[in-house]
Simulated assay, not measured.
Amino acid sequence: MTSQPKREIRIILTGKTGSGKSSLGNALLQKHVFKTGCSSSSISKKCVCRTEQIHGYQITVTDTPGLYDTNDDIEMKAEMENCIRLSLPGPHVFLHVISIGRFTKEDFSSIKTFITKFGRDVNRYYLLILTRFDDYKRDNNVDVLDFEGLKNNLTCEWKTLLNETFADRFFPFDNTLSGKSSVEQVSVLLQKIGDIISANNGNSYTNADFKRASQLIKEEQKRMLVELNREREAKKARIRHLEEERAKEELQRKLDEQRAKAETELQALHERENREREQRIDELRTAKAQRMHQRQLQERGDVNFEQAVHGIFQIAEFAFNIYNFFT
C-alpha cells in the first residue's frame, strides 16, 4: 500500500452495463465526459479516465467498460489491469453501481466476479452506489433510504453478500438532481469517500495488490485443478469399480440362469426317466397279468377236456353195463 496526497481522490466505477456508471462519473466530475445511454451492449468498450478539480480535490474517475459482459477471462483481466494503471498509483475507492430495486442475478454475479478478480481485501475500498434513488423516494414517499428494509426484501444470498462486502458502505444517488442540488449530493458522496480513505490511512489499492490477488487466484485455480483432477480420477475409479461390480453381477446372473436352466433340464430328465420306468413297469405288469390269464385259461381248458373225456368214458361204461344187463 502507498500513501497518497490528501487532496487527491482516484475513483474506479464498476457495475454491469446500464447500471448508471457513466452518469455517476459525469455527476462526480460535473461535466459530460463519459458517454451515457441505455443499451444491452456496453457503450464503453475500454476503460476511460478523466480528471477534474472539484471542491478543492483533484478527482480522477475511471469508467470501466462492461467488464462483466464478456466471457473472455483473459480480456477481462487485461482490462482490469488497464483500469488500475489509469488510476496509478492506485484507486482510493471502487464505486459499484446498482439501480435500486434491480438486484438481479447479473448484479449478484458482477459483485462476486469483482471480488474474485481483485481479492477479498478490495472490500475495504468498496462503496455501493444505489442509483435511481429518485424513483425510490417517489414510490415510497420518503426522503431517506431504509437500507436495512431494502435488504430485508432481498434473498438471503443477497443480504449475506451486501453485509459481508459493503457493511454500511452505501450511498443512495438521485439521478435527477441538477445544479446546486447535484453539487451538494456530490459533496456528501465525496465526504463518504473521504471516510473510506481515512479508514484505510490514505492508502490506495495498487496494481501490486491486483497482481497479488491474481497470483492468489492462479494458485487457487491450480489447487482447484489438482483437486478437480483428483476427483475426476476418483470418479473414474468409482465408475470402473461399479462397472466391475456390474460385470460380476451380470456374470453371476448368467451363471445363476445357466444353473437354474441345468437344474430344470435335469429335473425334467429325471421326471421323464421316472415316467418311462413306471411305464415299463406297467407294461411288464400288464404282460405278466396277460400271461397268467392265458395260463389260467389254458389250465382251465385242460381240466375241462379231461372232465369231458372222463364223462364220455363213464357214459360208455354205463351204456356197456346196460347192454350186458339186457343180454
Rank of each mutant, 00 (worst) to 15 (best):
E278S: 04
I322C: 10
K77Y: 06
A268S: 12
N324Y: 10
E245N: 03
N304T: 14
C156P: 02
M224L: 11
V309F: 12
C83W: 01
K261A: 06
K151F: 00
S187R: 12
T131V: 00
R253M: 05
Q58T: 12
E271D: 10
S87M: 04
S198R: 15
Q314P: 05
K218R: 13
L127N: 05
F103E: 07
H293D: 13
G25E: 00
H92E: 04
A289R: 13
K151W: 01
R232M: 10
I84Q: 03
F166L: 04
A289S: 15
D69K: 01
L162G: 07
E75M: 09
F166S: 11
Q279V: 01
Q290W: 03
N200W: 05
E257L: 05
G20H: 01
N201C: 07
K35I: 02
E317T: 15
D143N: 11
R275G: 00
D135L: 09
D73G: 10
H32N: 15
E276G: 02
S178C: 10
A308V: 15
E299K: 11
R85N: 09
R275F: 06
Q258D: 13
I115V: 13
I54N: 04
E157A: 08
L88P: 02
L154M: 08
L13D: 00
P5Y: 06
R7E: 14
T264A: 14
